[in-house]
């Protein structure tokens, strides 16, 4: 139940579509991106890798020797954003994740278990194994000293970071917040997802939104009109999600007939059906535009949220972004995209 005057003034993305805004927008328009063939010990045969992004090439050698891929992607995406807008060094960074870099955590444990001594591990990889690595690394690389927060929200991360960032703006704790989420592709993540029952083609990427107060002076791309989330305590998710949609519209004083676009968090399967059904139930019809970034860039886990918002930014008018996570959280954000 958050009422906000926050606006989105800039964005950036790195995904299988490429590095930067144009490749992602192009991929969404086209409706597809190239996936990569996997030949390692993976459970799947292909994944939507952000192949155009190489950590050492993008960031140099210094400080990247032990860096996890999630941190690299986040630093890269924030760099893309800051290359185009001038942001005060006191700006905050709020990033979403599922569990940080599963691969870095896995490798560390494997080394400890298989080498002659349990402490024959690379100490430099330890901070990269922590879930706050991506956000704090972004601060270090881009010299941003404001509030720096990591939220482990799974597929709800996009909505969670927007709500958290808006609160930082409302309370004056930051004048601007770089708000986004990141997920890497790795063998370790692929196996964890497989054991969780996931059968979707995985992807990786990072997307960032610059969130500022409405009066910050920069031309807004979109207004964040509201965020609603709930917990499906009874197990059934369609009802609570529809309730979120209904309430976000009601609180913003928006009629169901005014909503033109809907961005889904899931690519296919039960979740996508549920998301569409919940929105159609409230609107009384399918929205004019339905956007599904996950169909283009794969299942990017926690990172999907800001990609949904980025997709909506191409569709002027009122748009909804819905999200569902396996942990039983459901949510919806309402945006007014300015033309």
């Amino acid at each position: 139940m958050t009422r906000m005057t926050a606006v989105i003034t800039a964005w950036s993305a790195i995904s299988a579509c490429g590095v930067g805004r144009a490749p992602f927008a192009g991929g969404m328009q086209r409706g597809w991106a190239s996936s990569s063939v996997l030949d390692g010990p993976e459970p799947g045969t292909r994944a939507f890798l952000a192949s155009a992004f190489d950590i050492e090439h993008a960031l140099g050698r210094k400080g990247t020797g032990s860096m996890d891929r999630a941190s690299g992607l986040a630093i890269g995406a924030v760099g893309e954003l800051l290359a185009e807008v001038d942001v005060d060094t006191g700006a905050g960074i709020v990033l979403g994740t599922t569990s940080g870099s599963a691969q870095t955590q896995f490798d560390f444990t494997r080394d400890s278990l298989t080498r002659r001594r349990p402490y024959f591990v690379n100490p430099a990889s330890m901070p990269f194994a922590l879930m706050n690595s991506a956000a704090s690394q972004c601060a270090i690389w881009h010299r941003l000293t404001g509030p720096n927060t990591s939220i482990a929200g799974g597929r709800m991360s996009g909505l969670s970071v927007l709500r958290y960032a808006s609160r930082l703006l409302t309370t004056g704790r930051a004048g601007a917040v770089v708000c986004g989420a990141v997920e890497e592709y790795s063998t370790a993540r692929a196996w964890l997802e497989r054991h969780r029952g996931g059968r979707r083609v995985l992807g990786e990427g990072a997307a960032m939104l610059l969130v500022e107060p409405a009066d910050a002076g920069r031309r807004p791309l979109a207004e964040v009109l509201g965020i609603e989330t709930r917990i499906a305590v009874a197990g059934e998710v369609a009802g609570p999600l529809a309730e979120c949609v209904r309430r976000v519209l009601e609180r913003a004083g928006v009629g169901p007939g005014d909503v033109g676009a809907h961005a889904l968090s899931a690519a296919e399967g039960e979740f996508a059906v549920t998301e569409s059904a919940a929105v159609e139930a409230v609107l009384g019809r399918p929205p004019a535009t339905v956007l599904s970034p996950a169909e283009v860039i794969g299942d990017v886990g926690a990172a999907i949220g800001p990609f949904q918002v980025a997709a909506l930014l191409e569709a002027p008018g009122l748009g909804l972004a819905t999200a569902l996570d396996e942990d039983g959280t459901v949510g919806c954000g309402l945006f007014r995209v300015l033309s």
């Binding site: 080498r115 002659r116 001594r117 024959f120 591990v121 690379n122 100490p123 430099a124």
Partner: peptide, 18 residues
């Protein structure tokens, strides 16, 4: 100092020595 600890760790690992 972090780099030096890292160096010591890698020497131990590469040469399997304490």
């Amino acid at each position: 100092s972090m780099k030096l600890i890292e160096l010591l760790a890698h020497l131990e690992i590469e040469f399997d020595v304490e």
